[in-house]
């Protein structure tokens, strides 16, 4: 039973007893440890890929919780002092009528991080078990996750610019809250989790199934 990505006549470097450089594609025999073209360390597959994926994933999920509970911005004005969380910031933007910007912040700070947690977990589980999505779809999902993850950092930069700019001591001042640190950590951990995933595992699992 051949999967959609299994085409007769195609051989992987691993099946041929070779090691391919994950960075530049140069093929080496099994004894090689360093790529002779780009000097990257050679691994047939990234070592302990799934373990690292899950470890960074868990760290990302844990730091995402305080990032949403604690304040992201602390605003002091003549009349009031207020603290706003990530969601609070989005609600504020909707009150001002900036629906487009509210949407961008909501997608970058809530939808993308949550989506990434689910997508990475799904990919990691799917290479160990059978999956309903074929490997082309999962390969595509991996690239979307890898591409989009860094964009969550938007909110951290918003806090940086607002805090630097709004420092008018008698009228108004804005300062970063502790959630900014947690949120940045969560984004970094999730990026590391995605980077630890070896996309070649998606195709290996299919080949194993096709050979059954």
């Amino acid at each position: 039973m051949a999967g959609a990505g299994h085409i007769a006549g195609l051989t992987t470097a691993r099946e041929a007893g070779l090691i391919a450089c994950h960075r530049c594609g140069q093929v080496h025999d099994q004894q090689a440890t360093e790529c002779r073209r780009c000097h990257a360390t050679l691994h047939s597959r990234k070592p302990d890929s799934l373990q690292k994926v899950w470890a960074w994933w868990l760290a990302g999920v844990i730091t995402f919780i305080p990032a949403n509970i604690y304040p992201m911005l602390i605003t002091n004005t003549l009349v009031e002092n207020s603290e706003s969380t990530i969601i609070g910031g989005v609600v504020e933007l909707i009150h001002y009528g900036s629906y487009g910007i509210a949407f961008i912040v909501f997608v970058a700070s809530i939808i993308i991080p949550l989506g990434k947690f689910f997508a990475i977990a799904y990919l990691a589980i799917s290479v160990q078990r059978r999956s309903n999505l074929n490997q082309h779809q999962r390969n595509h999902l991996f690239h979307v996750v890898e591409f989009i993850g860094r964009w969550s950092m938007i909110d951290v930069f918003v806090v940086a610019i607002l805090s630097a700019l709004v420092q008018l001591d008698t009228v108004a001042s804005i300062n970063p809250g502790i959630a900014a640190v947690n949120f940045a950590l969560s984004v970094v951990f999730t990026m590391l989790s995605a980077q630890s995933f070896d996309p070649r595992l998606i195709w290996d699992a299919d080949r194993a199934a096709a050979n059954d």
Binding site: G5, G9, L10, T11, T12, A13, R14, E15, A16, L18, A20, C21, H22, R23, C24, G25, Q26, V27, H28, D29, N139, P199, R200, I202, W203, D204
Partner: peptide
């Protein structure tokens, strides 16, 4: 850039003329 590079597990080309896909390891 690909053509069949191996038949029955036997490589048809020298190592220098091979390149593997960084995403799925196909020669």
């Amino acid at each position: 850039i690909g053509i069949t590079v191996a038949i029955g597990g036997q490589l048809m080309l020298p190592l220098e003329n091979l390149v593997a896909c960084p995403q799925c390891d196909t020669l």
